[in-house]
Amino acid sequence: MRAGVRTYWKLVVSGFRQESHYRLAAFAGLVANVTFGFLKAAILFATVRASGGHLAGYDVGSMSAYVWLSQGMLGMVNLSGTHELGERIRSGDVAVDFARPVDIQGSYLARFVGARVFTLLPRGLPSVVVGALTIGMTMPATAQPYLLGGVSIVLGIASSFGCVYVIHVLGFWLVETRGLQLLYMVVSGFFAGLFVPLPLFPSWLHDAAYATPFPSVMMTPINVLSGQLTGLAAWHSVLVQVAWLAGVLLLGRVLTSAGLRKLEVQGG
């Protein structure tokens, strides 16, 4: 580590401030989030009611919490697979990143977390407020789920970055990573529980999802925050998140140093 905590904190803040300039983009994201939220709520509530009011641990109130927390988190985690790094590797600009006195993975991570935490203000919280006011949702009454949930959200944001970073670093070998990105977008959203919560999955598909890091990206933070998971189970799933985060970041580091040996940039 060539740079201290202060440097990374400044990068977090710069990411936060950069994102704060795109107000129209944030509002546009909110409109899309809320529209999808109402559609998701309509079909999932109908499913809960069709099974007699209780389904896989959900009633209408807790299903509403799932719908609006997932919509609120959508702007915060990266389930689209897009990142500037892929294009920078393709064009060779990444050489500039390597020349900087900060770690490449660490600096992108810091800026990503800063930018995505900002979206809580214009996208995350308003989505949840719209849902709570129009439909109503069941949320825990004690402080602990919110504190642990906050940690869990940040771990989810960082894990999504870790996965996307791996996809883009593969560009050192593949050059064109668009197909991989599309693959990531499909699989990560499905297994993160973006459109259907994972407890509704048939057991074989549920197990397949939990063999990937994607539940850690979105389903776990929602479960912890909404009080679906409490006590030891909540702590356990947050520890699983930490393990996945460490795993994907480590994989990214190994690939970065291998790619660096392969990288050849012309110019001067």
Binding site: T47, A50, A56, L183, F195, L200, F201, L205
Partner: peptide, 26 residues
């Protein structure tokens, strides 16, 4: 690209199917 696009369709269908895995009429 083709494989991923096919998967997009499959996942969208799966999202509908999973709901019907839980209930028979929706």
């Amino acid at each position: 690209d083709l494989g991923s696009s096919l998967l997009v369709g499959l996942v969208e269908l799966a999202e509908v199917w999973i709901l019907f895995h839980n209930v028979t009429v929706l």
